[in-house]
Amino acid sequence: MKFTIRVNGVEHTREVEPRLLLSDFLRHEIGLTGTHVGCEHGVCGACTILWDGAPVRSCLAFAVQAEGHEIRTVEGLAPGPGQLNPLQQAFRDAHGLQCGYCTPGILMTMTAFLEENPKPDEAQVREALSGNLCRCTGYQHIVDAVLLASQA
């Protein structure tokens, strides 16, 4: 079926099967491969995107359901080509990523979190992070990065 979706402010119209997962649509239909897939059962958080501003798992929604909603992905964070936004910069400064596979999902979760909690403490950051799995970093530098971003 044909539908239209807005991602990072850009409209895309595509003909898809209703069963196409939003994660697959973003990655393989419109080439936004920054959103990663780690489990396809809603646990790892790698596929987290913003749906009308709120973080959700894109592997647990069908693409066609997103019609009429505003979707934001990691590609929509940087202010311009070749640039980093303050949260992304903080991740670099604090070494908040290793393989970087979990990172886009974490950036999206933390973007929404920091909007609601601009000055969190470490415990709040860890709580908010707990729905995103990272296998490389042991989380410490991610926590540092989020705290760093919140001090900017």
Binding site: T33, G34, Q88, R92
Partner: peptide, 19 residues
């Protein structure tokens, strides 16, 4: 020092096999 590989990973531009 901060890493050379980070900017592309942070912008979602880095190539992984499924990409």
């Amino acid at each position: 020092l901060t890493r050379n590989e980070d900017p592309r990973l942070l912008r979602g531009e880095a190539l992984f096999v499924d990409d």
